[in-house]
Design a protein around this nucleic acid. Structure first.
Lengths: 172, 172
DNA sequence: TATTGTTATACTCTATAACTATA
DNA sequence: TATAGTTATAGAGTATAACAATA
């Protein structure tokens, strides 16, 4: 539990991160907006998966995911094959072109960070990543219930995943 | 200087921050998008100023700043008075309504963070803010010069402020 | 001629809602 | 009836370019 001033400061820092994100956006290769890059990155990290799983990892609505994926498919970076187990679903998989683009992306981001963060130690970069990871976790946890008494043995902050905005618990 | 893997991880964490920012966006009062909130916050923190200075603090193009300000002026949260020293400029100043909205905003963000980050210590929140501040600094520094030899006594990373995209040093 | 600020246009990311196909 | 995914539409944030007024 921190003081109000600290929360205000954190909010300011977070909303001011736009410049950093635009810095990342500027180094994207042609035809590849950040959205595509993130999709490819998740497929690289987690392997092939279905749309719904990807939407979950992206933490955006599935309609958004669908568009990002369509963009990448049109450019040959990934393919959608039918899921034999469920004909409604499609399996997403990186193509060789997708892997190639990922290599290019890694090279560019590394070059940029190496330049911008040349006075950051290995450890400091790691600490920032870790804190951001934790921050994301704290926000996606279901700490939204402003109901006073969480059911007895409460696992209130347990697993909960939504791939669609409608599935979210009521906002107020 | 960190390893490539760490840079990739940092890039991932940064691009995945959307969910957190949307969390903040959701608690905004009616008619008040995050853009307005940030503008008001900067005026509260730094006092009255001109458009160009605000654009600099926001780190966005002045055309964007102009729209955010117009939105806030239309709703009575701030006023634009002519600058006696330069008839091209306008001085921005918070109105009482603007101050009132800022109070409301502070209350809402505090409530949200207190709920979401209830297991973060005061110190941890402070550390994250500090690292984000430093990150922003590292990115706005003019470390973009990929020209090999910075002029002798180089103050290459010195003061540099742009309020307009056109004013930026060539991108490649 | 350069600078301050505004406006018009376009692009990216996102959500909501309506729809199709399958379970 | 519910779920997986797509598409159409709209809103927020941003940049670029053209413009007006002033320096």
């Amino acid at each position: 539990m921190a003081a109000q001033r600290q929360y205000a400061e954190l909010a300011r820092q977070l909303t001011a991160l736009g410049a950093v994100k635009r810095g990342l956006a500027r180094i994207m290769p042609a035809e590849c907006p950040t959205g595509s890059a993130v999709v490819l990155g998740l497929l690289q990290r987690h392997g092939e998966m279905r749309m719904s799983r990807l939407a979950e990892l992206l933490a955006v609505d599935m309609s958004v995911t669908s568009r990002h994926v369509a963009h990448a498919v049109e450019r040959g970076w990934l393919e959608r094959s039918p899921d034999p187990a469920d004909k409604r679903s499609r399996i997403l998989r990186l193509t060789p072109e997708g892997h190639g683009l990922l290599d290019e992306l890694a090279a560019r981001t590394t070059a940029m960070f190496a330049r911008k963060l040349d006075d950051w130690s290995d450890d400091e970069v790691g600490q920032l990543s870790a804190m951001l990871e934790r921050l994301r976790g704290s926000f996606s946890d279901c700490r939204d219930r402003q109901y006073d008494t969480p059911p007895a043995g409460s696992a209130a902050a347990g697993e909960a995943s939504y791939t669609r905005t409608e599935d979210l618990p009521a906002r107020t």
